[in-house]
């Protein structure tokens, strides 16, 4: 049997066109051996959830630099759950104040990475915490 390959979606929800970080991450995930689906900017939580299911990803990585993460990140998770895909893990990154972390964790976001997080540390976290779903 061929090896299970990790499939990761990198998505930018909401009105935020700053996608340099997201593209750097997509490239970094590619170099880590993952299959990366990149959706581009200005995505609604509904679009992201629908795409994640169509692509059968293991992980959705959200990038948000607009300050709307408290609304958008949980909204993506909620959409996935409503569509019967609560097994797809969601993590996020961007300009996110420390005091918002707990709120996001409580709403199903498994990890948060902020400016200063190294690419290696993100890949390491994924390798340790996300397994291709059986």
């Amino acid at each position: 049997m061929a090896e299970r390959k990790l499939r990761v979606m990198v998505a930018k929800p909401g009105l935020d066109g700053h996608d340099r970080g997201a593209r750097v991450l997509a490239r970094c995930f590619r170099d880590a051996g993952f299959e990366v689906i990149y959706t581009g900017c200005h995505q609604t939580p509904e679009q992201i959830a629908a795409a994640a299911i169509q692509e059968d990803v293991d992980l959705v990585g959200l990038s948000c630099l607009s300050g709307a993460h408290r609304y958008l990140f949980p909204a993506v998770k909620k959409q996935l759950v409503e569509r019967g895909a609560d097994d797809i893990m969601v993590i996020g990154g961007g300009i996110i104040p420390d005091q918002d972390f707990q709120y996001l964790y409580d709403n199903g976001i498994k990890a948060i990475f902020t400016p200063g997080a190294t690419l290696d540390s993100i890949v390491e976290w994924i390798n340790n915490n996300v397994k291709p779903r059986e």
Partner: peptide, 28 residues
């Protein structure tokens, strides 16, 4: 990638406006 086995699947970017249409199924 022939070196890492990874891939960037970016065709979807152009088609995302159909993501929510239940009559369309896009798979990379």
């Amino acid at each position: 990638s022939p070196f890492t086995g990874g891939a960037i699947l970016g065709d979807r970017i152009r088609m995302q406006r159909h993501a929510e249409d239940s009559g369309v199924f896009v798979r990379s």
